[in-house]
């Protein structure tokens, strides 16, 4: 299988603070790969180096064989990498519909966008009744769904998902992960950042664990689930 995403020895820093050092990871087309670790380990930073919000100081990021670590952020979206950021990064004073339309900002195929809007609403029926509502008035869970739906509107080949379960009730977490499984079944490649290690290892095929900006551990998710050290540190037993 071909590597859709290949990160090779990437380092990044915020001013003088080193955020990532020599991070390498791979993701094959159609796979869900999990990126795990504690707060401040560099998970979100890794996603943001791919989305080109955080500049890399060294290393290479390849998407579908093409180096993207120097592209402007909009070119990365155009190339087929779309991020659903964590938390409240919706356009809060715009309607849900406008948020979704903005998700398709880089596209010109109107008919395709229409079809994908229907598809996104099919994945997230809760948004359907709220299309005219301002995004800022949605609940936390609905905003999370809107962020994923917005990212899907770009028709990405690779979806970067940042903490989709953050701050959600167990029931909603289940719901969101059922949708992630569906997206995977439909052939989408996903790089998943999660704090909820148990759920992430269940849905992914391969996982990396970041500590202090470095890859501390990697392996098949199945194997990591039974790894004693992982169990102790991340699975609470």
């Amino acid at each position: 299988m071909v590597d859709l995403l290949e990160i090779e020895a990437v380092s990044a820093s915020y001013g003088r603070i080193q955020a990532l050092s020599d991070v390498s990871l791979k993701l094959q087309e159609g796979a869900i790969v999990a990126l795990l670790g504690g707060n401040g380990a560099g998970k979100t930073t890794t996603l943001n180096t791919i989305s080109r919000l955080v500049p890399v100081t060294s290393g290479v990021i390849r998407f579908d064989g093409r180096a993207i670590e120097r592209l402007p952020s909009h070119e990365v979206v155009r190339a087929g990498v779309s991020q659903a950021p964590e938390g409240r990064e919706v356009f809060k004073d715009m309607s849900v519909r406008e948020n979704l339309d903005l998700g398709a900002h880089v596209r010109r195929d109107r008919a395709g966008v229409r079809a994908d809007l229907d598809k996104a609403l099919d994945y997230f029926p809760a948004l359907k009744e709220r299309l005219r509502q301002k995004a800022g008035t949605l609940s936390g869970g609905e905003q999370q769904m809107l962020l994923i739906a917005r990212a899907l509107m770009a028709r990405p080949r690779l979806l970067l998902l940042d903490e989709p379960s953050l701050g959600l009730s167990p029931l909603l977490v289940q719901k969101i992960f059922a949708i992630i499984a569906r997206l995977h079944a439909d052939g989408l490649s996903i790089l998943l950042v999660e704090q909820n290690v148990a759920v992430a290892l269940a849905v992914s095929s391969y996982a990396y664990i970041l500590e202090n900006g470095e890859i501390a551990l990697e392996g098949r998710s199945e194997a990591l689930r039974n790894d004693e050290a992982v169990k102790r540190t991340y699975l609470g037993g």
């Binding site: 919000l53 356009f91 903005l102 900002h105």
Partner: peptide
């Protein structure tokens, strides 16, 4: 579409970049 992108940049520049708006 242009107006919407302008509003998006004013409202949330980071999110605007993430959806592929050319901010510059």
């Amino acid at each position: 579409k242009l107006g919407r992108a302008m509003r998006a940049v004013g409202m949330n520049p980071k999110a605007a970049q993430l959806v592929g708006v050319n901010i510059g």
